[in-house]
């Protein structure tokens, strides 16, 4: 008797019984699960499926095959481009980490409204059009660009250098500048999460400013900063437009390879296989980043 009563009480307290969902709840649930499925999962699944399809004489036959993956792993040039791109993205992420850390740290040390103004300014490029930013970089790095003009005017070189445009260095420089804001924000947040009282406590225990940085600020902000840098690496890995516009023929990257399979060679299954390889790499990197970030939180 008692249990019946308590069950009834429990039911009235939470409204209608759980199993009797109202039509509104069903609609909400459909939206919650359905929208991501249709918008994100379905396209992903479709090109995952494509990567296992056979293509003969530019026609997809519909047979399942692993040949697309075999072609990638057996081809020296695709593997070379893949690892070259990973290396490029790694360098871009490292530059974003170093420069981003220095800039974030300096902004973080500021007080009052200046710090948020500067933070806003450093994040401003994020709302600028991506293509515009690439053209801006081209006008700086190009043969007759700002950088060459500046170096010639200051007498360091006599003729315009071709070092800064249409090669891997150009891609690296352009990406590092364009993706720097993606590094600054997470690093600033990592610094901002350090409680002020920890810095007071370190000083109170006799630590000079440099010692506080090395023993408290750096170890507490580094995991978040590395996670931010990995995020930059993920974006850099998939970028095909920047390499195409400032890289020239030398600045060939994996993103461009995928694009050319879809846009020029019309070998969609092979392009899909390359995209899956990139996706797996990116997922691995994101997993690593979240692992580092979680370890930092637990501390």
């Amino acid at each position: 008797m008692m249990t019946v009563v308590s069950a009834e009480l429990a039911d009235t307290s939470v409204g209608p019984p759980r199993w009797l969902a109202s039509p509104g709840k069903i609609v909400v649930r459909l939206l919650v699960y359905g929208v991501p499925t249709v918008m994100i999962l379905a396209p992903l699944m479709s090109f995952l499926a494509y990567s296992f399809l056979e293509q003969k004489d530019n026609i997809v036959t519909g047979h399942l095959t692993l040949a697309n993956y075999a072609a990638f792993f057996q081809s020296g040039s695709y593997l070379y481009v893949f690892f070259g791109t990973v290396k490029l993205a790694f360098v871009v992420a490292t530059v974003a980490l170093f420069l981003g850390y220095i800039i974030s740290y300096l902004i973080w040390r500021l007080e009052g409204s200046t710090r948020y103004l500067l933070l806003l300014l450093s994040a401003l490029p994020l709302v600028m059009n991506y293509v515009v930013k690439i053209y801006a970089m081209r006008s700086i790095l190009g043969f007759n660009g700002f950088l060459n003009s500046f170096l010639m005017a200051s007498g360091i070189i006599n003729a315009p250098s071709k070092l800064f445009i249409f090669n891997q260095t150009a891609v690296m420089l352009a990406m590092a500048v364009i993706y720097l804001p993606f590094g600054i924000l997470p690093i600033f947040l990592a610094l901002e999460r350090i409680p002020q009282s920890l810095l007071s406590a370190a000083a109170d225990l006799g630590a000079k400013p440099g010692q506080i940085f090395l023993t408290v600020i750096l170890p507490l902000s580094l995991p978040g900063s590395i996670a931010g840098a990995l995020f930059v690496m993920v974006i850099a890995l998939g970028d095909y437009l920047t390499p195409q516009m400032v890289g020239g023929s030398e600045g060939f990257t994996f993103g461009r390879a995928i694009w050319s399979q879809f846009g020029m060679a019309f070998n969609w299954p092979f392009g899909a296989a390359l995209a899956v390889v990139l996706l797996v790499t990116v997922i691995a990197l994101i997993g690593l980043a979240s692992l580092i970030a979680r370890k930092a939180r637990l501390g």
């Binding site: 409680p195 009282s197 920890l198 007071s200 406590a201 370190a202 000083a203 109170d204 225990l205 006799g206 630590a207 000079k208 010692q211 023993t215 408290v216 170890p219 507490l220 501390g299």
Partner: peptide, 30 residues
């Protein structure tokens, strides 16, 4: 950092990335 005083903070301000022993040793290590 040169004053011979030490503070116990309201929120304790323990270093989250250090063990208890490392926290306690901090002032001496510095």
């Amino acid at each position: 950092f040169r004053r011979p005083f030490n503070t116990v903070f309201q929120d304790y301000a323990l270093f989250p990335h250090m063990t208890v022993a490392k926290n306690v040793a901090y002032g001496l290590r510095i």
